[in-house]
Every structure is written in C-alpha cells, then in structure tokens.
Design a binder for these strands. Sequence first.
DNA 1: CTGACTGTATTATATCAGTAATACAGTCAG
DNA 2: CTGACTGTATTACTGATATAATACAGTCAG
Lengths: 131, 131
Amino acid sequence: MLDFTALKLDDQTPIYQQVVRYVKLAIISGTASSGEELPSRRFLSALLGVNPNTIQKACRLMEEEGFLQSAAGSGSSLSFTPEMAAEMKRALLREETLRYLDSVKKMGLGRQAVLALVEDLWAEETGGEER
Amino acid sequence: MLDFTALKLDDQTPIYQQVVRYVKLAIISGTASSGEELPSRRFLSALLGVNPNTIQKACRLMEEEGFLQSAAGSGSSLSFTPEMAAEMKRALLREETLRYLDSVKKMGLGRQAVLALVEDLWAEETGGEER
DNA sequence: CTGACTGTATTATATCAGTAATACAGTCAG
DNA sequence: CTGACTGTATTACTGATATAATACAGTCAG
C-alpha cells in the first residue's frame, strides 16, 4: 500500500498534478512496485484534506498514462513494466535538468559556475549524505 | 528601452509571473540597467498578444518589489541599486537550484550522478559554449 | 443476502488567471 | 491649449482548479 503521508502539498501547482508527480517519483525511485495498491480515493482525499474529485482527476490521468489500473469494488493499483519506469525516469530527469540549465544560463552562469553551485548546495541541503 | 521580443510565453505559468521573471533575468544578467525604460503597458500587451490588465498586474508586482517606478504620462522605468541586483541573483539562483536538487534526490540520484547529468545536458543544450 | 467498502458520475458554487471594453487622470510635445 | 500619449481603475465574461453534496454501480467479507 503506497504511503502518502510524506506528500506535502504546496499551493503553487494544481493538487492533482502534485499527486501524479508524487506517485511517479515513487515509481522512479523504486519506492513503489508494480502491483502495489493505492489507498482508496475517499481515504486519500481525507488524508490530504482535499476534495475526492481532485483525487479522482489525478487517478484518471494516471490511468490514461497507463501505470494505474482501477475497478469498482477492487480499488486501484499500480501496473508498469521496468521499461516504463526507466523511460519515465529518463524523461522527467531530462526535462527538469534542461529547464534548470536554461534558467541559470539566462542568469549569466557558465558551465563551471553551475557545477560549483550544485556542489555547494548539494552539501548544504540535506546534510550531504555522500552516494 | 528594454526589449521584450525575446520573451516566449508558455502556458504552464501565469503570464504576469513570466513577465516579472523576464525583467528580473534581464537585471540579473546585466542586460538591463537602472533607469532604463519599459515599453508602455499598451504597447507591451499588443506585442505579447495578451491583455493590458495582465501587464498591469506584472508592473504592480515589480513596483511592490521595489525595482520599477511608474508615473502617469511619464511611463515606467527600472530603478535598482547594484546591491539589489546582486541579492536578486543570489536569491533566485539559490531557490531554483535547491528546488532542482530536491527533485533529483527524490528520483534517487546521488551527487556524482547529478554532476554528470548536468555536464551531459549542458553540452547538448545550446551547442555548449564554454565559459 | 446484506452491508460496507470500492470506483465513477453529476450538478452547483467559489476563486483566480486572463480577456475584453471602457473610463479617467497625469504628462508633454506641437 | 490641444491632442496624443502615459499609467490607473472598473465592470463583465470565460475557463480551469477546487470544493461540496449527492447518487449509482461493482466487489467482497460477514
């Protein structure tokens, strides 16, 4: 059963998008496995303090993307191949990195400056666990 | 006179936020200098193909942030000190980098993997001009 | 079978971003 | 002074996000 207690909602992005992203990150990082169940829509909406329709919208999107299967009475569960997970990771990493690089370039930074900045803030952020 | 022809609008973010960001990036990168004039709100809205009220909202925000001065009849012009520009750059770089690093960490990447990814996509993106 | 859960669908309302169409007041060149 | 520009303000409309309150149908343990 996928855990949603770690999902912190911000009010800058549509909630349904944040929910989809949270599930995708769980798949990408290996936290969630294919076949794993999601809490019911009603339970999830109560847990997150949002409307059931908002969760329903997130679930509909994930079904359309092909990694969630739902059936009345049986609940909803993840369903994806390792290839789908790998492609999901590749696409999301590429997209976010290109957006970030485009942004810092517009601020006038060069390659070395970005690398230095990333190293600096990497250490600062979460106590710098080496990997 | 600040040039807005290079501003490409996307439909994922509120337009007024994109306009503010564009002006900030011009200040940060040194493209714009204090005292420089902005095109009139009507001209700008026509150029970007958006509503005058949207531009008005962007201008109001920039006034509240303290780097734009407006007066009826005289137009709007930038007004900032070198210290304000430096602080703007520092804050924006820090914010965007931390957001990016948080995201890639959630996807399971480590320090080395991020640095490698940034180097790879840096070269790919704009033909890789060294700096 | 019954009841309590599941997903699904519908209608109404509120808020916000953006559009649209005006109106008004300050500045300044002619 | 006049007119054409400037910023500023107001009202009305649309679409998307989210809320709220239901209603209906499928599943399954007791």
